[in-house]
Computed example of a mutant assay.
Amino acid sequence: MIDLGISKMALIGAVALIVIGPEKLPRVARTVGTLLGKAQRYVADVKAEVNRSMELDELKKMKDSVVSAARDVETSIQSTASDLEKDWAATTAGLTGESGVSSAPTTTADSFTRYPEYKHPNKHWRVKRGATPQWYKARAGVRTKALSGAARVARYRPQKPN
Rank of each mutant, 00 (worst) to 15 (best):
L4K: 11
M9F: 05
G13Y: 01
V15D: 09
A16V: 01
V19W: 02
V19D: 10
K24L: 08
L25G: 00
P26F: 01
R27D: 08
V28H: 04
A29V: 07
V32L: 15
L35Q: 13
L36Y: 02
K38W: 01
Y42D: 11
D45K: 13
D45M: 10
V46M: 12
K47V: 11
A48R: 14
V50F: 01
N51D: 15
S53V: 07
D57M: 04
L59Q: 11
K61I: 08
S65C: 04
S65F: 04
V67E: 14
V67W: 02
S68G: 01
R71E: 13
E74R: 10
Q78E: 15
Q78C: 03
D87M: 09
W88N: 11
T92I: 12
G100W: 07
S103D: 09
T106W: 01
A109E: 13
T113S: 06
Y115R: 14
Y115M: 13
H120K: 06
P121N: 07
W125D: 08
R126C: 08
K128P: 05
K128F: 04
T132I: 15
T132N: 07
A138Q: 15
R139T: 06
G141I: 02
A146H: 09
L147V: 08
G149Y: 05
A150N: 07
A150V: 11
A151H: 07
A151G: 03
V153R: 15
R155E: 12
R155M: 15
R157V: 03
